[in-house]
Design a protein around this nucleic acid. Structure first.
Lengths: 370, 370
DNA sequence: TAGGGCAACTAAAACGTATCAGGCATATTG
DNA sequence: CAATATGCCTGATACGTTTTAGTTGCCCTA
C-alpha cells in the first residue's frame, strides 16, 4: 500500500512521525475536493468517483464508507468540474418573450411553471427562467446558451404561426419540447391541447342554452392556439347556425374591457360573450357590472382559461378548466424523455379542457321589443 | 512515456505535408474551443482569453479580430470550464417553500420575480427557481447548492420569526439578500418595507372616513411582516381609539372567505374589513356580494396588496399599492452588490406602499336601530 | 502449478478555460 | 548607446472531476 499513511485525527501539536505533512488547521476550509474524501476513506479519487456515480467496480462496503464520509462533510462533486467532463448541467431553460412587467398576471403560466419545476426537481434538475422583450432577444438567448453549453433542455411557449424557434433550437441540438404546439409535424416534440374541441365545447354549451348571437373576445391571432380557436368558431357558425362576432385583442385586461364595452353597446346585442383568457373575462365582467348589464340575466360570460380569477368574483365565471399544473408535469416528463433518449419528435396530446358551468351563464333573456 | 503510442487515424492516406495533424473535416463540428478561435485568428489561446475577459495585455485590433471571429462562429467560452477556474456561475437561486400547486396564485411573487430576473439578466445572470414543500427541504437545497457550488447568490423570501435560514446561508458563505426581512440586525442584508407604517395608513384612512369598528383578516402570524402589521393594529387601537377584531388565516382564498363570513355574521357588525392579501380581499368581496351585504354601502373593503385582482372586480378594491416589480429590481441590485463586494449586512428600506382609494371604501352607514 | 478470469482498486489522461511567469520586440530614459 | 521600461503576446500549469487503461491479488479450473 502506497504512502497513504492515515492521518490520525490529532488536534494536538504536530505529530512528529509525519514531518512532511504540516496540515495547517485552515480557518477557511478552502473547499473539499474528492481528494480529501479519498484520503479520509483511504482510497483513491477514482474510487470516490465510482462511489458517487453508482458505477460498478467497487465493493459495497467501500462505497458506503465513502458516501458516509462525504455525507458527513457535506461534500459533493463540484458541478463545474463534472459538467466539464461532459455530464449534464442539470438545468433546463425557459425563456419567455413578454414585457416583464406584464408577466405574473397570467396564472396559467405560473401554474405550468410550478408543475414543470416540481417534476424536474425530482430528478435534481433546476429550472432557469429568463424573461426577454421579444422573440429576437429570445433567439439570441438560445444561441448564447447553446454556445455556452448552459442548459440541458428547453421548453418553448407561445408558439406562433410560422415560428422560427423550433427549427433554430433543433439546429442548435438542444433537446426541447414545445408547450402548446399543434399536432402537425415539427422538428421538436410538442405537448398540445385540442383548442378546437375545447372551443367547440363552449359553443355547444351556449347553443344548448339557447344563445344564438355570441360575442368572442379573442387573443393575438398570430398564436397557433388562437388560430385553432378561431377555426372552431368558424366551424360552429355553420354547424350550429349561431351568429358569432369576434373582437381581437392582445390578451390584456385593458383591451378585454374595451372589447366588452364595444360588444355590449352594439345593437342588437349578443347574449353571451366568450373570452380567450381569464384576465379578460374578469375585466369584461367588471365592465358589464359597471354598465348595468346584469350577468347572467342580460349576458352570459364564459372564459377559456380557468384560475382563481374566475372563481373569486361574483358571480363566478363559467370556464374551461384543466389541470394546468399537470400540464406542466406532463411537459417536464416529456422533456426528460427527450433529454435522455433523443427520440424522434412526436406530438403528445394533453387532455381537452372541461367546461365547468358556474353562475355567469344562463339561458338568454326573452326577446323583447327594442 | 508508457506504450501510449499515438494511433494514426489511418482512414485516409496520411497527408504528406503535416503528418502529425490529420485534421479530419468533422461532419458534426464537435464543439468549438478557444483553440479553434485562436488558430483562426492566428494567436494563442491565452490571447483569446484576454480578449474575451476584457483584460489588458492585448492590442485593440487583435482583440477585435478575435471577437469578430468568435461572433461569427457563435463561439463562447464553455461555462463549466470557466466556472471551474473560479469564475462565477452567473446564476442566482431562489427557493420557495410552498406547496407547488398553490404557487402562481400570488401576483406579488410573480411580479417580484419578474423584476428580479429582469435586473439580473442585464448582468447576464440567470435565475434558478426551485419550489420545495417545506423549510426543511429548502435548507437541504441550500446545503446542496453550497456543496456543489451551483449558485453565486440567493434571495430569501417569507422570513419567519426565529428563521434559521439567514444564519445558515451566512455560514455556508453564499451571498444572499432577504426580501421582506425586518430592520433589525441580521447576518444577511435585507430589503424590507415598513409594514407598520403601511398598515397605519390604512387605519388612518378608514378612521378618517368615520369607521370605528374594523375587521382585520390577517395572514400567518409566524411571518415577520404579519407581526409588524399586527403591532400596527394594536397601536391603532390606542392611538385612534377604534375597535379592531383580527381573524388569522393561512392567506388562502378559502380561509379569507370563511373569515369574512364570520365577520359579517357577527353582531354588531364591523363597517370595514382589512385583508392582508389581494386574494383574500377578492374572496371576501365575493362573500359579501353573495350575502347581500353591499360594498361599500354596508361594509368597506381594503386590501393590503395590490394587483390585477383588486383592480378588476366591481367595485374595484381600495388597496395599498407599491411597485412590486421595482421591489424585485431593488432586491436584485442589492444582491449584485453583495455578490461583488461582500459588504457588511445592512437593511435597505423599500418605499412604503401608498394607499389608493377605489370604489370599495366609503364612510360607514348611518347608525340605525337594530 | 500454470493459466485464465474476475473483483477491487489505482495512476494518469482528459475536459476547456484562465492565469501566471516569462519572451521578444520596440520605445524611453540617462 | 546601453539600460530600462512598456506593450503585446505565448507556453505551461491549474481548476476538480470522470474515464480509460491498467495492476494487483485472489479464486477457479485444468
Amino acid at each position: 500500500m502506497p504512502p497513504n499513511d492515515e492521518v490520525p485525527p490529532q488536534d494536538s501539536a504536530a505529530s512528529p512521525d509525519s514531518p512532511e505533512r504540516p496540515e495547517p488547521p485552515e480557518p477557511t476550509p478552502g473547499r473539499l475536493r474528492s481528494t480529501d474524501i479519498a484520503r479520509l476513506a483511504g482510497v483513491s479519487v477514482s474510487a470516490v468517483s465510482l462511489a458517487f456515480n453508482a458505477r460498478p467496480g467497487i465493493s459495497d462496503s467501500t462505497r458506503k464508507r465513502i458516501l458516509d464520509i462525504a455525507e458527513e462533510l457535506n461534500w459533493r462533486p463540484h458541478r463545474a468540474a463534472r459538467a466539464l467532463k461532459g455530464a449534464g448541467n442539470d438545468v433546463v431553460g425557459i425563456v419567455i418573450a413578454r414585457p416583464a412587467r406584464t408577466l405574473g398576471v397570467e396564472p396559467f403560466f405560473a401554474h405550468v411553471l410550478s408543475g414543470l419545476q416540481s417534476r424536474m426537481s425530482i430528478e435534481g434538475i433546476a429550472t432557469q427562467l429568463l424573461i426577454v422583450e421579444d422573440t429576437e432577444a429570445e433567439v439570441a438567448v438560445y444561441r448564447r446558451w447553446a454556445a455556452e453549453n448552459r442548459v440541458d433542455g428547453l421548453v418553448l411557449f407561445d408558439l406562433a404561426v410560422d415560428d422560427v424557434r423550433p427549427q433554430l433550437v433543433a439546429d442548435l441540438r438542444i433537446p426541447a419540447v414545445i408547450l402548446g404546439g399543434h399536432g402537425a409535424p415539427s422538428p421538436l416534440t410538442s405537448v398540445w391541447a385540442d383548442d378546437h374541441a375545447a372551443m367547440t365545447r363552449i359553443l355547444d354549451y351556449l347553443s344548448s342554452l339557447g344563445h344564438r348571437f355570441i360575442g368572442h373576445v379573442s387573443g393575438v391571432p398570430s398564436y397557433q392556439h388562437t388560430r385553432r380557436r378561431l377555426r372552431a368558431v368558424a366551424d360552429a357558425r355553420e354547424t350550429l347556425g349561431v351568429d358569432i362576432v369576434t373582437v381581437e385583442t392582445d390578451y390584456s385586461d385593458t383591451q378585454g374591457a374595451s372589447a366588452t364595452r364595444r360588444l355590449l353597446e352594439a345593437s342588437p346585442r349578443c347574449t353571451a360573450i366568450i373570452y380567450d383568457s381569464d384576465v379578460m373575462a374578469v375585466a369584461g365582467l367588471g365592465v358589464a357590472t359597471e354598465m348595468g348589464v346584469r350577468v347572467p340575466d342580460d349576458v352570459s360570460i364564459v372564459s377559456f382559461d380557468d384560475s382563481v380569477l374566475t372563481r373569486l368574483p361574483h358571480p363566478p365565471i363559467t370556464a374551461l378548466t384543466r389541470d394546468t399544473y399537470a400540464l406542466g408535469t406532463l411537459t417536464a416528463t416529456e422533456l426528460l424523455h427527450v433529454m435522455a433518449e433523443r427520440p424522434e419528435p412526436r406530438a403528445v396530446q394533453a387532455p381537452t379542457p372541461e367546461l365547468v358551468p358556474r353562475g355567469s351563464t344562463a339561458p338568454p333573456p326573452e326577446r323583447r321589443v327594442p
